[in-house]
Design a protein around this nucleic acid. Structure first.
Lengths: 142, 142
DNA sequence: CTTCGTGCAAAAAATTTGCATCCGT
DNA sequence: ACGGATGCAAATTTTTTGCACGAAG
């Protein structure tokens, strides 16, 4: 997913290309393969486009998430982090607790999982595997 | 992990058994097998012990987490959720996005994972499998 | 020239902290 | 009595929202 591709998605969605939006995208592109939080995106965006507002950042992160351009999650800190989706096939991550750098795990444990992990050069300290959905009761009275 | 067991852990840690703490524990015990957020714990605790403060709840959730009595995580909403650890062996969860009810998955995908899932009566809508640790660079200048 | 986007300011939500007092052990 | 625990109030942190103005298509 490169800049042109992303800008196309925005246009298709009826969104305009403002300098702020471009700056946010630049920042995300620069941080491919790494989760960053809203605060960091804000700081870096503001360095590119002076005066960009925090609300603008949050609003755009929302839009980008809805368009499937970025992925939002929350790791251990509790605050939300974002990264560009640059690898369409479904996958998971190894996440550095210190810098947020991620490595892709190309496969999903739901199908097979062994250890595509060994060669990753990460010191593992923990992991999370959670399934989301609706329990029987909640499926009923949806 | 029952009440007596938990109270023992608290004593061993040098913590006192205050009525507020007991109330919080009662609430958590009542919600075994379900993630609840701080707000809900606060409301329910305050129903048991009138006047309990929100700070008290947060402070105790911290303590309980550090003692390994509860498990804190953040699911999709972004706000932290907690549940009693009542099943010591390492495991993961299926989480209802609506009510927070959880089901245990007794095994960890890191070792083997097939589908201990089929019989769970959950409508799956998504899942998260994330490994945490330190990348090579961050391990170095730790 | 219309619609969407932005900045600003303020509010809301989630969590943390300092401090004086209180209470379990 | 001692040391941890609580309530309160206030501060922080993270995120959201209303509104008037400005700019992209």
């Amino acid at each position: 997913m490169d800049r042109k591709h992303i800008e196309g998605k925005l246009r298709d969605g009826g969104y305009k290309l403002t300098p702020q939006r471009r700056a946010i995208l630049e920042v995300l592109l620069e941080h491919r393969g790494r989760f960053v939080d809203a605060g960091e995106i804000y700081e870096k965006t503001r360095a590119r486009h002076y005066g960009t507002n925090f609300s603008t950042v949050y609003r755009n992160l929302d839009i980008l998430e809805n368009l499937g351009i970025i992925h939002k999650t929350s790791i251990e800190s509790g605050t939300a982090v974002y990264e560009l989706i640059f690898h369409r096939p479904h996958h998971h991550h190894i996440i550095c607790k210190k810098c947020g750098r991620t490595e892709i795990i190309d496969m999903c444990p739901l199908e097979q999982l062994i250890k595509a992990v060994e060669d990753k050069d990460f010191t593992l300290t923990g992991h999370k595997f959670e399934l989301y959905g609706y329990c029987r009761d909640c499926s009923k009275n949806q």
